[in-house]
């Protein structure tokens, strides 16, 4: 369904060009639950932004349902069926939670329907629906609202960038259930970037990205033993040595 072909991405830094994603190829099949993990700074969020169209690759091609979307903009990709929950959700002065969920759902949802999505991410809907998506929300609340916007979109491909970050332990189990339900109810695919063993544990496939490249890829049963209890999940030295 989604294919990345030889994707490279450079940015201009102080010391000239820096290659953040290096000739990376990856395919995500229909109905699959794929988890990307790997060390901080490895290029995971960058890859997600390349998929959403926020960044354009320096070279390589991106195909979505066999269509070349390399040159397609963010809006176009969103409307084709790609959703993206940010690692760091954006705040909006004056825009209410209800407004945001309605925009995401692309229809005039009733307040009750919008509440459904908030309840799913463990927010007591009536307390939040009229709140502004501004600095008054806590980090975890904002993160849940971000996830709710992607749920409301209900698209073919949903990409979540570290959805568990900032979510408390008690709610964590609920979040896992949200993803499991999503996987059952949509025949779409879910791509989650995560450092959490419990999320890795529900993956069909696991991809490890370090230093802009895929270092491991395979089924959960294949990859889990390789990364748990070894230093390779988070390789502190390679991060420090950079």
């Amino acid at each position: 369904m989604l294919t990345l072909e030889n994707i490279s991405f450079d940015v201009k830094g102080e010391g000239g060009e820096k290659e953040i994603i290096k000739n990376l190829s990856l395919t995500i099949d229909e109905g699959k639950f794929v988890v990307i993990t790997g060390p901080n700074g490895g290029g995971k969020s960058t890859l997600a932004k390349l998929i959403a169209g926020i960044y354009k690759p320096t070279s390589g091609r991106i195909l979505f349902n066999e269509t070349d979307i390399t040159e397609a903009g963010i809006t176009e990709r969103a409307n084709m069926g790609i959703s993206f929950a940010f690692q760091q959700p954006v705040r909006f002065k004056g825009v209410q939670v209800l407004d945001l969920i309605r925009l995401a759902a692309k229809k005039k949802l009733s307040a009750a329907d919008a509440c459904q999505y908030l309840s799913e991410v463990g927010l007591c809907a009536k307390d939040y629906i009229n709140r502004e998506v501004n600095g008054s929300l806590s980090g975890g609340e904002l993160k849940r609202i971000e996830i709710a916007t992607v749920l409301a979109r209900n698209t073919q491909l949903s990409v979540f960038d570290e959805p568990e970050a900032g979510i408390d332990l008690w709610s964590f189990q609920n979040l896992i259930q949200v993803f499991e339900r999503m996987r059952e109810s949509t025949n779409g695919s879910i791509l989650i970037i995560s450092h959490q063993e419990r999320i890795l544990n529900i993956a069909d496939e696991i991809v490890v990205i370090a230093d802009g490249q895929i270092t491991k890829k395979g089924s959960r049963d294949e990859i889990m033993p390789q990364i748990m209890g070894t230093a390779s999940a988070v390789d502190a030295c390679s991060v420090l040595n950079r």
């Binding site: 809006t75 969103a78 959703s83 909006f92 925009l103 916007t149």
Partner: peptide, 10 residues
């Protein structure tokens, strides 16, 4: 902010 709303299809 604009980017976020564009990812919602606006």
């Amino acid at each position: 902010q604009i980017i976020k709303l564009m990812t919602l299809g606006l």
